[in-house]
């Protein structure tokens, strides 16, 4: 299982890009960290979530 924003999800083996698409994230607004390390945008297609990864997907909203 992969922990995403604190919730256990069955997404091991799925790419960051596929996960974001399946969950309706707007890629231009997100920051993805896996085990406290940033995943660069150009690795979204190639980075596959691994079992026991701890993932933070920050989806920014406007206002300031």
């Amino acid at each position: 299982m992969v922990k995403i924003n604190g919730e256990e999800k069955d997404v091991a083996g799925i790419s960051v890009a596929k996960f974001l698409e399946d969950n309706n994230y707007d890629v231009s607004r997100v920051v993805v960290e896996v085990n406290f390390d940033i995943i660069p945008k150009n690795e979204y297609d190639t980075y596959m979530f691994k079992d026991e990864d701890s993932v933070e997907v920050v989806s920014f909203v406007g206002g300031g």
């Binding site: 231009s28 607004r29 945008k41 920014f60």
Partner: peptide, 9 residues
């Protein structure tokens, strides 16, 4: 929001 994400990334 997009500017925020751009800068943080």
């Amino acid at each position: 929001a997009k500017d925020k994400a751009m800068l943080v990334n």
